[in-house]
Amino acid sequence: MVTKPEALTCSPPKCRLGRASPDERREHILAVAARVFAEDGYGATSMSTIAARLGGSKATLYKYFPSKELLFEAVIQQRCGEVVAPLQAIAEADGDDLEALLVSFGLQFMTALFQPEAIELYRTVHAESRRFPEIAAMFMRSGPEILFEALTQTLQRFAERGQIVSTDQRLAAGQFLGMVKADLHMRVAIGLEATPDAATIEREVRHAARILVRGLAPR
């Protein structure tokens, strides 16, 4: 989410908000905080650093977020929400073509996963979670666990109709997402490769969807 241009009265990295609404101020704080966390890491980032980048006082920052932990959690929730919301809509859509639904889900998932903001968040959580396991828990409950549940419920619906045979939809959901990501996401996240093009993503997703549907088809 980007703060509306009219709310800014100077250029990044140090910005002061002019006549901005509380919601605009909050969004701007989250945008700046996300950048600082990505650049400096969770452990090395302080509320003082974020306040300085905002060009305001710590008192103003604490008014919106009482602690660094709550601010980071808000960043995670915002970033994950941008990925999760459209995927939940796809998973909840009516239809009897599971393979087509999985392709739509997978394409949206992978496209969102490779956005720069999503890669930055993943790197930050991965780098800091050993020292700060609470941020790993924040990330899991704000994003992956919601996605697993949405896809699990979708597979449950198809199993109840007899269109697939599966006694563990949660396992099947996790395996599909794992196949979709394969090693592509890891290679990009660790900087070995650039973001794959749309054709590569689609090839990976369609192959994974086909494997899952055929593997779960009634015999």
Rank of each mutant, 00 (worst) to 15 (best):
M179V: 05
P196S: 14
K181D: 05
V188K: 00
A33F: 06
E120A: 13
P86W: 12
T167E: 15
Y122Q: 03
E27H: 10
Y62F: 15
F176Q: 00
L8A: 07
D94Q: 13
A209L: 12
S48K: 12
A194R: 03
D23G: 07
M138F: 14
A112V: 02
A173E: 03
K68A: 06
V180S: 07
L98S: 02
L147I: 05
D183W: 00
G55Y: 00
D94W: 05
A34F: 12
F176M: 00
L184M: 11
M138S: 10
D97R: 03
F132G: 03
R203M: 02
E99T: 09
K4C: 08
A7E: 06
L147F: 05
Y62D: 07
G95H: 11
T195R: 11
S11I: 07
A182T: 08
T9K: 09
V103W: 04
A189H: 03
L102P: 01
I190H: 12
V205T: 11
K14W: 04
L177T: 14
A100W: 06
R170A: 10
L101W: 01
Q108S: 13
V165N: 14
E99F: 09
P13C: 06
R26W: 04
A173T: 02
A173Y: 00
I211K: 12
P218Q: 06
I211L: 14
E6D: 09
T111M: 08
P116I: 08
E128L: 14
A34P: 04
E160M: 14
S129H: 04
L30A: 04
F72L: 14
S46L: 10
M1L: 12
R206S: 09
A199G: 13
V84H: 00
K4V: 11
A172R: 00
E39S: 02
Q175N: 08
I50R: 03
Q169A: 14
E39H: 05
Y64P: 06
A51I: 09
A150T: 01
E24L: 09
L8P: 06
Q108G: 13
R25C: 09
E149C: 03
D94H: 12
G95Q: 11
Y64C: 04
R25T: 10
A44F: 09
F139M: 07
I135W: 01
Q115G: 02
D96V: 10
G81K: 12
P144T: 10
R206K: 13
E193M: 03
R203H: 01
L71W: 01
A189Y: 00
R26F: 09
E204W: 06
I76S: 03
T111S: 10
P218L: 10
E99I: 05
I76M: 06
